Amino acid sequence: MRCRVPILLCALLLASAPVLGAVPVAGQPQADGTHFEAQLQADGDAAWNVTLSVPIGTDSDRDAFEAFADRFEAGEADLELGVDAFERAAGEASAASGREMSITSVSRHSEVVTDPDSGETYGVLRVSFTWESFARIDDEDTLYVDDAFNTTDGTWLPGLGSDQSLTILAPPGYGGPTTSPIGADGGDLRWEGPTTFEPGYFDIVYHPSGAGPATNGISSPLVAGALLLSGAALLVGLYLLFGRQRGDETREPPEAGDADSDGGTAGEPTDAAAESATPEKDGANADPDTGADEPNPELLSDEERVEYLLERNGGRMKQATIVKETGWSNAKVSQLLSSMDDEDRVDKLRIGRENLISLPGEGVGELGEEP
Score class of each variant (00 low, 15 high):
I7D: 12
L9W: 07
A11P: 02
L12C: 13
L20C: 15
L20P: 04
L20I: 05
G27D: 03
G27E: 07
G27I: 12
Q30R: 15
D32N: 11
G33Q: 11
F36Y: 11
F36L: 01
G44P: 04
G44H: 13
D45A: 15
A47G: 05
T51A: 14
S53M: 03
P55I: 11
G57M: 13
G57I: 11
G57W: 14
D59T: 14
D59R: 13
D61Y: 02
A67L: 13
A69T: 04
A69S: 14
R71L: 15
G75H: 04
A77H: 03
A77V: 08
V83Y: 05
A85H: 07
A90Q: 13
E92V: 08
A93G: 00
S97R: 05
G98V: 07
R99F: 05
T104E: 12
S105P: 03
E111S: 15
P116Y: 04
G119L: 03
E120H: 14
T121F: 06
Y122C: 02
R126I: 00
R126L: 01
V127I: 10
V127H: 07
W131A: 01
R136A: 15
R136F: 05
I137V: 15
D138V: 00
D139N: 12
D141T: 03
T142H: 10
L143F: 01
D146P: 05
A148H: 04
L157I: 14
G161I: 04
S162L: 10
S165L: 06
L166I: 05
I168C: 08
L169M: 05
Y174K: 03
P177T: 03
P177S: 02
A184V: 00
D185C: 06
D185T: 00
D188A: 06
L189G: 09
E192H: 09
G193V: 04
P194R: 12
P194S: 11
T195H: 02
T196Q: 13
E198H: 06
I204N: 01
G210L: 05
A211Q: 11
G212M: 01
A214T: 11
A214N: 09
A214S: 08
N216K: 12
A226I: 08
A226C: 04
G231Q: 10
L235N: 11
V236E: 11
F242H: 14
G243D: 15
R251F: 12
P253F: 05
A256K: 07
A256Q: 01
A256F: 05
A259T: 09
G267A: 04
T270M: 03
S276G: 08
D282M: 09
A284C: 14
N285F: 07
N285M: 10
A286E: 13
A292W: 03
P295A: 02
E298V: 11
Y308A: 09
L309N: 09
L310E: 09
E311V: 08
G314L: 03
R316S: 14
K318V: 02
I322L: 15
V323T: 05
T326E: 00
G327C: 02
Q335G: 10
L336Q: 05
L336S: 07
D342I: 01
D344K: 04
R345Y: 11
R350D: 06
I351N: 11
G352R: 14
G352V: 09
E354S: 15
P360M: 06
G363S: 15
V364K: 03
E366T: 15
L367G: 10
